[in-house]
Amino acid sequence: MTDRSGEFVSLDRDRMPLDEKLYRLSEDDVAFLKLHTGIRDDDELKQHVLEVQADAYQVGMETGDYHEHVTHTIVFVKVYPYPCIRYFMFTHTGIARHFAYGQFLNLGRERPDEIFLELPVHAVSDGFPQQNCVAADLERKYWELGHRLFKSTPESFPVAFVPGDIFDQDYLASSVQPVYAQPNSPAPALSGLASLTPLRGHPALPLPGSMIFGRHHSADVKGVRDFPVPDGDKTSNVIQVFCHSPQTWMVLWNGKVFKEGTVEVKVELQEEPVSAMAPPERKLYVMVWSVTRL
């Protein structure tokens, strides 16, 4: 999720235009898309993905200003050209290769009330109960485009979706301390959620085995790194990105977010192929991690 209270630094569609040459899907990604879309021809599948990508790159937030003596509202649309859309990351099936993925699927099989909160569903295809899943993203349009990408409908894939900004207090009320005790109330009906606040304590019940897992850009040493931003075929702009190291990431979860000794943190640091977004030292790292209740 992305905090929209600030500005994207130099990230706009003019400087980061869509580029068909970036369409480089793995065999697993192609097989997954063919299975769920029913499209068998490679060229037809590529065209389908490109059309959805182009529409996703136009998604924005409507803002406006209303005045009492004006008969209409002026509406502005601010478009968010997410790099993950430009680089076709929405087609990747990397979650299935996460080292904790098998552990996660077992939770869905063994605990009938386990809730999976997805922030961006491949997992349903691999057996996690879809009635226990809830997805979240900034705009409902992204979820609708997901249905279009996989040629599904809310009826054929009835997973609950709750649009909103994870940094908005009205969407997810924060607290000083994490939840350690089991909630007094039963889990809410996922289909009726208007925010994520009613889920507090439910997706991560204080039961052994409950988990959080993910992957993101990282570094071998904690600190701020300069990342070039593509400007067409050039990389003349730079943004600064704070990166954790595996060691500081483990300390963050085991001792700061949760009481030390109450969770097990596993981390793998993987070096990615050099790309246009690689930092000046020409090494790009991704941290793959999981946090499991003990």
Rank of each mutant, 00 (worst) to 15 (best):
P273W: 03
L119H: 11
H98F: 03
L25S: 01
R97G: 11
Q131M: 12
R13F: 10
A181Y: 07
K34C: 12
Y66G: 10
S195E: 03
E268I: 06
V134N: 00
D3L: 07
R148H: 07
S290C: 11
S185M: 11
E51T: 09
S174P: 06
F99W: 03
Y80H: 08
G94C: 11
K34D: 11
W143C: 12
A31Y: 02
V238I: 11
G127K: 03
N184P: 10
L252M: 06
E51P: 06
I85C: 07
P279F: 05
A100P: 04
V241H: 10
P230I: 00
L149C: 00
G209F: 02
V291N: 01
V9N: 14
L149F: 02
K21N: 13
L105D: 07
L252E: 06
I166A: 13
E68T: 11
N106W: 09
T197F: 05
Q270L: 14
D29G: 03
F128C: 02
L196M: 02
P163Q: 04
S245W: 05
V52W: 02
S5M: 06
I39G: 05
H48I: 04
Y80N: 09
A54E: 12
C133K: 02
F242S: 07
Y87N: 15
V267K: 02
G146L: 03
P246L: 04
L107Q: 04
S236I: 13
G108H: 05
E155K: 08
G102F: 05
M211G: 08
Y57V: 06
Y57C: 07
E139T: 08
V251G: 15
Q103A: 15
N106R: 13
G255V: 00
R97T: 12
G261Y: 03
I239W: 07
F8H: 13
P178Y: 00
Q270C: 15
A160N: 00
F258D: 01
V241S: 11
L205N: 00
Q177K: 12
A181V: 09
R40V: 11
V238L: 06
S5N: 09
G60S: 03
